[in-house]
C-alpha cells in the first residue's frame, strides 16, 4: 500500500465498523488528516464519532478497511506494540476514564509514569498542566470529590501532559459552561499551534460554526462516503 504524502498522519481507507448482529455504525469511510491539522468530527449523537476515535487508538478494530496512524498500519500492530502507538495519542475520553482511587495528580502523572518518569521528574510538568486547566489547587483531591466539569478537565490534563503528536478529543467540552468551554478551546488551539494534530469530536455545532477549520460530518446514511 502506497502511503500518500508523508504529511498525512491519520489515514482511513474504506473503513467499516459493524457490531454484530446487525448494527452497521458506518461503512466505507475514507479520511485523511494532515499533520498539524485541527479538524472537527461531527454528527448527531449515536452516529459513531466515539467509535471512529476508538478505532484510531486500537480500542476497537474495524470490520473492514485499513487505518494508518503516523505511517503505521494499525492492523499490523501486535498487542504488545499497541501501548507505543497510544503514547503518541492523547485521548480525552467522553466518559473521562479517571482512576477513582487515585488523586488528580496521580491520574495526570500516570501518562508520564507509563513512559518511565518517576513522580519527582513529572511533578513540574503535571502541576503546569493542572494550572493550565485551572485545577492546580485540587491536585490532591480524588475524582469523585470533583464536579463533572472538573473531572473533564483532569481528563484533558492527562491527555496532553506528555505532549502527544495527536490529540483525540471526544466531546471535551460536554460538561463545561461557556467560559470553561472557551478555555478548553483555547487550550486545544494552543496545543495545535505547538504542532499537535487535533481531532475534536462534538455534536455541538456552535463550536465550529464560525471556524475556518475543516469539519468532517459523519454520514447518516449507512453507505455514503465522507
Amino acid at each position: 500500500m502506497i502511503f500518500a504524502e508523508s504529511s498525512t498522519i491519520i489515514h482511513l481507507q474504506g473503513v467499516t465498523k459493524e457490531y454484530p448482529p446487525d448494527n452497521i455504525v458506518f461503512s466505507n469511510i475514507d479520511l485523511e488528516i494532515e499533520k498539524g491539522e485541527f479538524i472537527f468530527l461531527t454528527g448527531p449523537s449515536g452516529i459513531g464519532k466515539t467509535t471512529l476515535l476508538r478505532l484510531l487508538f486500537c480500542a476497537e478494530q474495524p470490520t473492514s478497511g485499513e487505518i494508518w496512524v503516523d505511517g503505521v498500519a494499525l492492523s499490523s500492530l501486535s498487542n504488545s506494540q499497541i501501548p507505543y502507538l497510544r503514547r503518541k495519542i492523547g485521548v480525552i475520553f467522553q466518559d473521562f476514564k479517571l482512576l477513582s482511587d487515585h488523586t488528580v495528580f496521580d491520574n495526570v502523572a500516570l501518562s508520564l509514569e507509563v513512559i518511565g518518569l518517576n513522580r519527582r521528574q513529572s511533578r513540574k510538568r503535571v502541576m503546569q498542566v493542572l494550572e493550565g486547566v485551572g485545577l492546580a489547587g485540587k491536585w490532591s483531591n480524588y475524582p469523585l470529590q470533583l464536579s463533572g466539569g472538573e473531572q473533564q478537565r483532569v481528563a484533558i490534563a492527562r491527555a496532553v501532559v506528555n505532549r502527544p503528536a495527536i490529540v483525540l478529543a471526544d466531546e471535551p467540552t460536554g460538561n463545561l459552561d461557556q467560559e470553561r468551554t472557551n478555555e478548553v478551546m483555547m487550550l486545544m488551539e494552543e496545543l495545535n499551534a505547538r504542532g499537535a494534530t487535533v481531532v475534536f469530536a462534538t455534536h455541538d455545532d456552535r463550536l465550529y460554526e464560525n471556524t475556518h477549520r475543516r469539519v468532517v460530518k459523519l454520514p447518516e446514511g449507512k453507505f455514503e462516503i465522507s
Binding site: 480500542a59 501501548p83 497510544r86 485521548v91 475520553f93 500516570l110 501518562s111
Partner: peptide, 12 residues
C-alpha cells in the same frame, strides 16, 4: 477499570 485505563494511556 484500572487495568483498562492503564492500557488506554499507553502502559505496557
Amino acid at each position: 477499570e484500572e487495568l483498562k485505563i492503564m492500557r488506554l494511556v499507553g502502559a505496557t
